[in-house]
């Protein structure tokens, strides 16, 4: 009798685990095939000297990784991306949150605004490049025109060609194009907060600010972390806007990691080294994201 029932438990346990794995099976299979395999190849290439064409690859060990430490333009480009990411984390997400809060409540025309705020991400890169190129243009630009209108002619300049302003100008375009993403997720997050919690708070006599601090913020922390990680990932991999406006110039002022990787891969014919850059880049992003997840978990426990 006894062994039989034990057997039964085992079988049901195995069955239970199998169903659990079945849930992740499709995603996992696709991932192993189309994600992990190219991923390992990139790692493998990162320890080789290869121009992307030749049939043989020369194994160089960690030499590429040693070289990257003294690659000034590369670390510069990382700093540029980090700067844009920082601006985006603060301003883009603040804007997205404010707009999401405004639209989340019963406001006239809420529907229309919700649609309009998602337009920039939808626009093609060509349109974005043309429009912003025109705004920032040194001679015929809208921005200089407005400054003249406000009596601030002395600030007028070719915004994208001045190393002092070019990176920030790029960041503004990026934030303008990107806040729609955060807006959509934050809106979904706000909608996900059970209304009962607010009603309970109202019963306790909480005002608007108290409701925001005591209900909205704690419930939204995981979504905030999600949006932050997405902002960092999206911003660090910025490329399209730069390709459409400055090409990394003037000098190296608006170079970002992806433009550097492409420069190694296509310009310099160093495919192996480009993979090294990609790996280093990925590892740094991973560390940043995991740290964020850790912190958010800690915050949740508090």
């Amino acid at each position: 009798m006894k062994p039989k029932s034990e057997n039964k438990i085992n079988i049901s346990k195995v069955m239970d685990l199998t169903t659990s794995y079945l849930f992740i099976l499709p995603a996992l299979v696709i991932f192993l095939l189309f994600g992990l395999y190219p991923f390992t190849q990139v790692f493998w290439l990162s320890v080789h000297n290869w121009d992307g064409i030749a049939l043989s690859k020369v194994f160089v060990g960690l030499r590429n990784f040693i070289e990257i430490f003294s690659d000034g333009p590369w670390w510069n480009s990382m700093c540029h991306a980090a700067y844009i990411a920082l601006l985006a984390l603060i301003f883009q997400n603040a804007l997205a949150l404010i707009l999401a809060l405004l639209v989340d409540k019963d406001i006239r025309g809420g529907n229309i605004f919700r649609v309009i705020f998602y337009l920039p991400p939808v626009l093609s890169g060509i349109v974005v490049g043309l429009i912003w190129g025109w705004i920032y243009d040194g001679n015929y630009g809208l921005l200089n025109h407005w400054l003249g209108f406000l009596g601030l002619e002395h600030l007028a300049r070719a915004w994208l060609s001045d190393p002092k302003t070019s990176l920030t100008c790029i960041a503004v375009i990026h934030m303008w194009k990107g806040f729609g993403w955060g807006f959509v997720i934050l809106l979904a997050g706000l909608q996900g907060i059970p209304r009962a919690l607010y009603e309970a708070a109202e019963v306790d006599g909480a005002g608007m600010w108290q409701k925001f601090v005591n209900v909205t913020i704690p419930m939204m922390i995981p979504v905030f972390v999600l949006v932050m990680i997405m902002t960092i990932l999206g911003t660090m991999q910025i490329f399209d806007i730069i390709a459409a406006t400055t090409n990394g110039g003037p000098g190296y002022a608006t170079e970002v990691p992806v433009t550097r990787i492409l420069a190694s891969m296509q310009g310099a014919s160093r495919f192996g080294y480009a993979c090294t850059q990609a790996v280093v880049f990925g590892v740094i992003l991973l560390i940043v994201s995991l740290t964020q997840l850790r912190i958010s978990k800690k915050m949740k426990q508090v």
């Binding site: 190219p38 990139v42 990691p257 990609a278």
Partner: peptide
């Protein structure tokens, strides 16, 4: 999660 991090060029 790691998969999200490595940029596409090179793959």
């Amino acid at each position: 999660v790691c998969m999200m991090m490595i940029p596409l060029p090179g793959q």
